[in-house]
Write a protein that binds this DNA or RNA. Sequence first.
DNA 1: TTTAAAAAGGATAAAAAGGTCTTTTAATCT
DNA 2: AGATTAAAAGACCTTTTTATCCTTTTTAAA
Lengths: 143, 143
Amino acid sequence: MFSKSCEYGLRAAIFIAQQSKLKNKVSLSTISEEINSPQAFTAKILQQLTRNNIIKSIKGPYGGFMVEEEKMSTQLSEIVNVLDGDSIFTGCGLGLKQCDASAPCPLHFEFVEIRERLKKMLENTTLISITDELNIESTILKP
Amino acid sequence: MFSKSCEYGLRAAIFIAQQSKLKNKVSLSTISEEINSPQAFTAKILQQLTRNNIIKSIKGPYGGFMVEEEKMSTQLSEIVNVLDGDSIFTGCGLGLKQCDASAPCPLHFEFVEIRERLKKMLENTTLISITDELNIESTILKP
DNA sequence: TTTAAAAAGGATAAAAAGGTCTTTTAATCT
DNA sequence: AGATTAAAAGACCTTTTTATCCTTTTTAAA
Ligand code: FES
Ligand code: FES
């Protein structure tokens, strides 16, 4: 469904958001331990999220990564878009060059509904909405 | 969503099924033209579908590929399973080692619904159901 | 101001996916 | 039987994804 980059990126962003809610900055090594991802690769992904202004990084001792208050409303769809592009939201299920109801593939009408539901779900889920729920239900970020 | 192999494989299988309904065998070159896929690569994919007994191949002059009558009820989910494995049907959206309601990731409950809907759709769609519809609606397999 | 912690950036490497080419095998026609 | 046609099989190549390593830059604290 999503690339490895995207999976790690989502898990990382959620973990950082959790900690930011508790006013903690977190270092790369902590993040990759807590979400069980390869450290150096995770660093690259965090750079992308930083460049795209989804998380904030602070260099130097006592530095780390955090999600700023106003970025806590970031939709997961934005993160997916940064890391995997938008083909999951707009592409044809059978790989036709463009998904178009006027020239539909055999799966089009059913596929679009599922794709839209996925899109809506990722748009309606934000870093803040997840970290709020995390306090209630017990969900996890590593295997 | 699906790999290129899977996209080509689904398009090819649907095209072959269409033609089999008209009692036509189709050659590799025809298939790759009609579904707009790279020929040599498509050959590899058709071999997989043949080995997995989803389509039938006939060598020699007047040979080609076809879907046998009893295989027209093949579910698209079987083709996806052969070409991409079952991770799309069972894997965790955030890439946790296993998707498990007792240790759910933050997306689990919503993700499972979408994943199940995709699975049901691909199980309910068969080569025969698609080729029946193809006569009614005008759906396409390329570009 | 020196030190050390931490991210950024660049180079590289391994693995997987995507794709091509050549030889072999099987079927049909003459 | 021999020539021809078409897929099967396996070797090979290219690109993308996934991943590591190492150096540089930044910066807080002693
Ligand atoms: S054309 Fe294939 S999903 Fe829309
Ligand atoms: S645990 Fe992540 S989708 Fe089920």
